[in-house]
Simulated assay, not measured.
Amino acid sequence: MTASIYLALDFPNWHTTNQFLTRHDLIGVPVKIGMELFYREGPALIEKLKQNGHSIFLDLKLHDIPTTVKKAMRNLAKLEVDMVNVHALGGSAMIQAAKQGLVEGNTRFQTKLLAVTILTSMDQTNMEQNLRLPGTLESNVLHFAKLAEQSGADGVVCSVYEANAVKNVCGNSFLTVTPGIRLVDAQDDDQKRIATPSYAKQHGASVIVVGRTVTQADSPKQAYDQIKGAWANGNR
């Protein structure tokens, strides 16, 4: 079963990562591993985290020709993480190939495949100017979500503000994984479409990803527990 809250470990290496988790009593919490840390440490990092009881979302956002993505996913399937992702902009054939690679790569453990819709660092203006996509931001997110669902993905990465609409289009069992989660008094950093944990839960998020609001807090454990409480109880 996929966890509900993943902590983004945006650290440069294993030593710093392990030091943070140990010092702040966060061993065993579900975590998200991005490109910076995975490209530095490789698959051995995943094994170390799993040995410490961490569920893992491997956030590599693959985007390449279908054959390359399929072969990459065959290898990633062997790591037996909870979730991995691709960019929906890669198209239907690529998403289908990614799913096929995951299935072929491991028949006893099924990693869930997510497709990234529009990055939460983008708003309507950024999307229009940089991606040249017509229509509203939400309409594009819904287009990519439906494309992903029809191509075999198990869910999408989207902002909280599109999560309910994605559920309406793709069904309640389709995962909506939402980054950009902040506590009320936290800074926005480089995210545009952000929200609190309780807002996320009330507006269709299946899974939330939290990062700097915990890792840069004065008391990371207290911040993490506050997020867990907000998700569970709907406060702040």
Rank of each mutant, 00 (worst) to 15 (best):
M1D: 09
A3K: 08
L7R: 00
L7H: 05
L9F: 11
L9Y: 06
L9C: 01
P12G: 03
P12F: 14
T17P: 01
N18A: 14
T22M: 13
R23F: 03
D25W: 07
I27Q: 11
G28I: 03
P30N: 13
V31A: 10
V31K: 09
I33L: 06
E36A: 07
E36V: 02
E36N: 09
L37E: 00
R40V: 15
E41F: 11
P43Y: 11
K50G: 14
N52W: 13
G53N: 12
I56H: 01
L60N: 06
L62C: 08
L62W: 00
K70M: 07
K70T: 08
A72N: 05
M73I: 10
M73N: 01
N75M: 11
L76P: 02
K78G: 12
V81T: 04
V86N: 00
V86W: 05
L89G: 13
S92A: 10
A93S: 15
Q96S: 15
A98Q: 01
A98Y: 07
L102D: 08
L102Y: 07
V103I: 12
E104M: 05
T111F: 13
T111E: 09
K112Y: 14
L113I: 09
A115P: 05
V116E: 02
I118S: 03
L119K: 05
L119F: 10
S121M: 02
M122A: 14
T125A: 08
T125Y: 13
M127L: 12
E128Y: 09
L131H: 06
L133W: 12
L133T: 02
P134E: 09
T136K: 07
T136I: 04
V141D: 01
V141S: 00
H143G: 14
H143L: 12
H143F: 12
A145S: 11
K146L: 03
K146N: 13
L147Y: 04
L147K: 10
A148I: 04
E149R: 08
Q150L: 10
Q150T: 15
S151F: 15
C158E: 12
S159T: 04
A163D: 03
A165I: 07
N168M: 11
V169G: 02
C170W: 09
S173K: 15
F174M: 14
F174N: 03
T176N: 08
V177L: 10
V177A: 01
I181H: 06
R182T: 15
D185L: 13
A186S: 07
K192H: 12
K192M: 00
R193I: 15
Y199G: 02
Q202K: 14
S206M: 02
V207P: 07
V209C: 06
V214A: 03
A217P: 11
A217Y: 09
D218P: 01
Y224P: 03
Y224N: 00
Q226N: 04
A230Y: 04
W231Q: 02
W231T: 05
N233M: 13
N235I: 06
R236N: 15
